[in-house]
Nucleic acid binder design. Structure first.
Lengths: 143, 143
DNA sequence: TTAATAAAAGATATTTTTATCTTTTATTTT
DNA sequence: AAAATAAAAGATAAAAATATCTTTTATTAA
C-alpha cells in the first residue's frame, strides 16, 4: 500500500505528535527506538518531512523534533503525499498512465471508490488525533 | 497499491482471457504489445502464472498462452496473491509485523475495512468477466 | 527427421528502494 | 570561547524490484 519509507514516516510523526503533546522534543534516536525503525534511515525521512514543514526541528542540545499546534493540524494524507506522492490517491490501479473516465482500465470505477475511501480516511486523520489512544496504549507504533 | 509486476500480470491475464474467449492463443510478444509492457519481463511473469496454474501455456508453433474454462473462473484476487502475496489483504497499513485487534496500529480498524473492500472487489472479479467490456473497447489495457 | 516456432529456464544488468556512515552546521551549556 | 549535542547534508552501500539477453526444451509443420 505505502512504501516502507512512508510507513516509517507515519509512525514517526505519530510518535512525535504524542511526545509533543507532552511538551517534549525527541531526537532521531528516540523516535527510532519508539517506532522500531533503522535510525539513520529515519533521519533522512524526518529531514524530508522537516523540509516540507510537516515536522519542526531544532539543532543542538535540547534540540530535536516536535510538532507545534499548526503542524498538529496536518493529516496523515499530507504525510503520505509528502513521502509517496499522490499516486495512491490518483494513480490507476493497473498502472495505466492515461487511465480516465473516458479511457478507463477494467476496474477503474471500483478502484476510484477504494482510492477515495483511503484518501478520506487519511485526510480525516489529523496528526494530533491519536495521542490519547497511544497514551492509553490502546494502539502501538512498534512491532 | 500493487507492484508493477502485479499490474502487468493483471493486464496480461485479462488480455489473454479476452483472446481466449475468441478461441485464440497468444504469444508473449502479442501480449506485451497488447498491454504495453516490456516483453522479456512479461515472459517471466507469465511463466510464474503458468507455474501456479492460473494461465495455461503450450510450446512450439501454434503454441502460446490461453485460459481454459477452469482458469476463467480464477479471480483477480488469485492473480494478486500469486504475484504479490496476501500482504495487501492481511498486512498492517503501517508495516507492523504483529498488528492485530489486541495490539493494533492507530489505523487498524479503518484499514481493515479498506483491505476487506479491496479483497471483495478483486475476489468478485472473475477473469472472464471483462471480455465484453474489452471487446466493446469500453475499457482498455494499455497506455 | 529436420527446420521453425514459442515457452521455460537460467544468467546478467539496470534501476529503485532501503539502509548506513561521515562530515558539516547550528545551537546550547559550561 | 570551547566542548558537547543534535539535526542537516552528503556520500556510499546493500537489497529488492524491474528489465534484458541467452540457452534449453517441447511441439509442430514441412
Amino acid at each position: 500500500m505505502f512504501s516502507k519509507t512512508c510507513e516509517y514516516a507515519i509512525r514517526a510523526i505519530l510518535f512525535i505528535a504524542q511526545k509533543s503533546k507532552q511538551g517534549v522534543k525527541v531526537s532521531i534516536k528516540d523516535v527510532a527506538k519508539g517506532i522500531d525503525s533503522p535510525e539513520f534511515f529515519l533521519g533522512k525521512i524526518l529531514q524530508e518531512l522537516s523540509r516540507k514543514g510537516i515536522v519542526k526541528s531544532l539543532k543542538g542540545p535540547t534540540g530535536g523534533f516536535y510538532l507545534d499546534d499548526e503542524s498538529m493540524q496536518y493529516s496523515l494524507a499530507d504525510v503520505v503525499i509528502a513521502i509517496d506522492g499522490d499516486k495512491i490517491f490518483n494513480g490507476c490501479g493497473l498502472g495505466l498512465k492515461q487511465c480516465s473516465e473516458k479511457q478507463p482500465c477494467p476496474i477503474h470505477k471500483e478502484f476510484k471508490k477504494i482510492r477515495s475511501d483511503i484518501f478520506k480516511l487519511l485526510e480525516n486523520s489529523k496528526l494530533g488525533e491519536f495521542n490519547d489512544l497511544l497514551d492509553k496504549r490502546l494502539a502501538v507504533l512498534k512491532r
